[in-house]
Amino acid sequence: MAEQVALSRTQVCGILREELFQGDAFHQSDTHIFIIMGASGDLAKKKIYPTIWWLFRDGLLPENTFIVGYARSRLTVADIRKQSEPFFKATPEEKLKLEDFFARNSYVAGQYDDAASYQRLNSHMNALHLGSQANRLFYLALPPTVYEAVTKNIHESCMSQIGWNRIIVEKPFGRDLQSSDRLSNHISSLFREDQIYRIDHYLGKEMVQNLMVLRFANRIFGPIWNRDNIACVILTFKEPFGTEGRGGYFDEFGIIRDVMQNHLLQMLCLVAMEKPASTNSDDVRDEKVKVLKCISEVQANNVVLGQYVGNPDGEGEATKGYLDDPTVPRGSTTATFAAVVLYVENERWDGVPFILRCGKALNERKAEVRLQFHDVAGDIFHQQCKRNELVIRVQPNEAVYTKMMTKKPGMFFNPEESELDLTYGNRYKNVKLPDAYERLILDVFCGSQMHFVRSDELREAWRIFTPLLHQIELEKPKPIPYIYGSRGPTEADELMKRVGFQYEGTYKWVNP
């Protein structure tokens, strides 16, 4: 592979701008107003304001973009700056750019259920340069409990009458099928589907988006991507930290609602779906819905739930269990780990287990898709061969690698495990991989909904998990304890083995 010439960040961002501006969906010269509902909250200060700053800094926003914060707290732009700027990672050389960014910011205080507050917000936006005809993007960085009041008031008082209007809704989209349907029906009564952007930030990850290209742009994968060759698929999300004093919020939802029903299920769809007619948003989402419709409700015998306990040999936070978090209700049975087996009941995947695993306070930070292939028929190497695996590593250190057998150097035919490896950090030294939120917010500006969740996708996802969630809430089974920093409950490994996964433990990928 030829040595790549190092590029400056300015040059890299210039390439990104060229890609972005050559499309006809990006209205570079139009006025846009980006409204952050819930501007005083954690999500706004840690993710949304920093993301908008990065896009502005790199010249990736339309030229005439204004940012308006809205929340109940009586704040000023200076207050917003004070709480969000520490997350910007701005350099001293960017000081003038930073001043320009905050000059485009404003803030309006108001209630979430008060019509007069929204009329005041609308008047404020109209007073901005060309504000009355601007395109408006409303980001709901809010708890779902206020979605209905907020969307109703936005629709009645704050819509642009000339430009387009788009609304970005953060997960969780309800707690179960019934609450999700209620919320979807409410929002759909106010906005068209092409105006609604239900954001799952995992769909903005580079390697998640790469799944489609790997599958449908490489001839070698087509013939082997089926039940005849693939023994099982494992989708993993692991965090090495616990709730760390923020367990009160987590306890309301648990690990299945927080990660599995959305992030992991979306990745499953991209692995299992048929080739779409095109890369058009609805063509892709149509195929994802077909996959979900082929999955039956989760069966309790295919589920393992766990909850982390303190590690007596650990240090600091590792010595504390979930129930030691003062914000967690006493005696909570909320799971911090889950392993679930699903089956896609169609011709391509009949009988292939899709194993979804996620948890907190585990032994490493990792998100990946792992396809394990069947054993080689007619073994001539005296059971020395391990199964081939194709691994798409989402985070950290984005990579695609194939675990395969090669001859060990020497005189004899002794096979050993090795890999074919594409590590993004080595291959793409001159490429700026956008943060997931950067990519998705740019998608909203461009009107691309491919990486957002459609209402029928959402409904099918909740259909699969709601009976299990209701059973857990009714019966309150005690989750299996696992030690902070471990791989999780051993019962999860036993479940995976029972459905056909072979864990060798003899080879570990190392970032080159």
Rank of each mutant, 00 (worst) to 15 (best):
Q161T: 14
E19H: 15
K152S: 13
E252L: 10
R227F: 08
G41H: 06
D79G: 09
F237L: 09
Y139L: 06
E170M: 03
N185V: 09
K82V: 13
P50L: 04
G59R: 09
S132D: 12
A127G: 13
E63C: 07
A103C: 11
K47C: 00
N210S: 10
G110S: 06
E239M: 04
R74E: 15
R219V: 12
N226W: 05
H124I: 07
N122P: 00
G38C: 03
N153Y: 11
G247T: 06
P92Q: 11
H32M: 06
I168V: 08
A116R: 13
L177A: 11
F66M: 08
H27N: 15
G23T: 15
V208C: 15
R166K: 09
H155R: 14
M207K: 08
A71S: 12
D100H: 11
F101S: 02
V169F: 08
E93C: 13
G59P: 01
L61S: 00
P62E: 08
L61F: 09
L183P: 04
I33T: 11
L75S: 09
D24T: 08
F34A: 06
A78R: 11
I52Q: 04
Y197R: 01
I15S: 08
Q22V: 13
I167K: 00
G242H: 03
I224M: 13
R72W: 01
M125A: 13
I48G: 05
Y139D: 05
R227I: 01
L177V: 14
C232V: 06
G247A: 07
L121F: 09
I48E: 01
L60F: 12
G23S: 15
V68A: 05
R246C: 04
E94L: 06
A231F: 04
A127E: 14
I224Y: 05
F138N: 03
A44P: 01
L121T: 00
R166C: 00
K95V: 09
E252T: 14
R166T: 00
A109H: 09
I234M: 15
D79V: 08
H186S: 10
V77Q: 11
P86D: 09
S29M: 09
M212S: 01
A127K: 14
D42N: 05
I48Q: 00
E193L: 03
G222T: 11
S184T: 15
E193G: 00
L20A: 15
E239Q: 04
V213G: 05
S29Y: 15
K47E: 01
I48P: 04
H129Y: 08
S73T: 11
I80G: 06
I168H: 04
P223N: 15
I33C: 10
K89E: 15
A217D: 03
I187S: 05
R219S: 09
G242V: 03
T151S: 13
P172W: 03
P50F: 00
L130M: 15
K171M: 02
P223M: 08
A231I: 07
F21P: 09
N185D: 11
A44S: 07
Y112N: 02
L183M: 07
Q133R: 15
N229I: 05
I187K: 01
F66C: 09
D113P: 08
F66D: 05
G245D: 07
H155C: 11
H155F: 11
G69C: 05
D24R: 11
F34L: 08
V233I: 11
Q83W: 11
I168P: 06
D30R: 12
A217G: 09
E93H: 12
R74N: 13
W164S: 07
R120N: 12
G69H: 05
G14E: 15
S188N: 11
K205Y: 06
R57F: 01
A231S: 14
Q111Y: 14
V146K: 11
A134S: 15
E63H: 15
I255V: 15
T76S: 12
F101Q: 02
L61R: 01
S184F: 11
K238C: 04
M125I: 12
M125Y: 02
A231R: 11
L16K: 10
L128Q: 13
E239L: 03
S84W: 08
E239K: 02
Y249V: 02
A217Q: 06
Q83F: 12
L130P: 13
G38V: 03
N229L: 04
E170C: 03
R9S: 13
L96S: 14
R120K: 14
I67D: 03
V77I: 15
L75A: 13
S106I: 13
I80K: 00
N64T: 09
S188F: 04
I67A: 03
H155P: 06
L60Y: 07
L130R: 13
K82H: 13
L20G: 00
A231T: 08
N165C: 15
L211S: 00
G174I: 04
D113Q: 11
L96M: 12
I220V: 14
L140F: 11
F221M: 15
A141F: 00
A134M: 10
F173C: 06
Y112K: 00
I36S: 03
D30L: 13
G69K: 00
H186C: 13
G41V: 06
I33Y: 13
G222C: 14
I15Q: 08
F102G: 05
Q119D: 15
D100P: 02
H201A: 01
A141C: 10
L214H: 07
S84H: 10
E18C: 07
S73Q: 09
G245K: 10
N122I: 09
P240V: 09
T31W: 13
A141E: 01
N122S: 12
A90C: 09
E85P: 03
E19T: 10
S184M: 11
T51M: 11
G14L: 09
D58W: 09
F88W: 05
I36D: 03
V150N: 06
Y197L: 00
K82E: 11
L61D: 00
I255P: 05
L75N: 09
V169Q: 03
G245V: 01
M212G: 03
M159G: 09
L55S: 10
G174E: 04
T243L: 09
W54F: 06
P144Q: 04
A109L: 09
H201F: 04
I33Q: 07
I234N: 13
C158V: 13
Y139T: 06
P86S: 09
F241V: 05
R227E: 05
E99M: 09
V213P: 09
